[in-house]
Amino acid sequence: MIVRHITALLKGLSITLKEFFSRKSTQQYPEEKRQPYAAYRGIHYFRPGENGEERCVACGLCAAVCPNHCIFIEAAESEDELKHPERQYAEIYSIMLERCLFCGYCEEACPKQAIALSRRYDMAVNTRNQMIYTKDKLLAEGLELDEESVGGEIKKTGRRSLWGA
C-alpha cells in the first residue's frame, strides 16, 4: 500500500524533474515574440507600390466582399500622377479592426494586390478608436514590414490570363 504511494510520488516527481531540465516552451512575451505560420492572417497593411505610388485605386471590391462590412472607402480623383497613376484613389480608407474576422477575403479580392494581411497579431490597444486602421496607418504598416512578408503571388496559367498584363 505505502510502496504504491511512494512509487506514484516518485513517478510524478520524475516528470517534474525531467521538465525542469528540458527546453522551456513558454515565451517571455512581449519581449520575445512568437513567429506565426506563413499562412497566418493578422493585421492588414497596404503594400507599397514599386515606384512609391499607392496601389489602392478604391475599386471597393474589398469592401464589397467583406462579410462584416468593416471596410469603408471613399474614392476621389487625384491630380498627382506619380502617387496615383490611375487617377482614382481612396480618399478615405478605414478598417474597423474590432469587427474584422481576419478571413482574408479583402486580400483575395484585391485586383491590385494593394491590401494584404500580415502575420502581426499584437493589436491590443486602449481605446476603440485606435482599432480603426486608416489609410495612413495601413501605409505606414506596409513600409515597416519587410518584403519577405509580402505575399500573394499571381498565378500563371497556360492560356493568357485576361487579368494579366
Partner: peptide
C-alpha cells in the same frame, strides 16, 4: 483595357456581366 477597378461602369457594365455570364476568363 480591363481597368475595371477604376472604371465607373464596373458593377453595372454589360460587357463585364456577359464576360461573367459566359465564363470568359482567358483568351486565345
Amino acid at each position: 483595357p480591363l481597368d475595371c477597378p477604376v472604371c465607373d461602369a464596373s458593377g453595372a457594365c454589360r460587357l463585364q456581366d456577359m464576360t461573367f455570364e459566359y465564363g470568359v476568363t482567358s483568351g486565345d
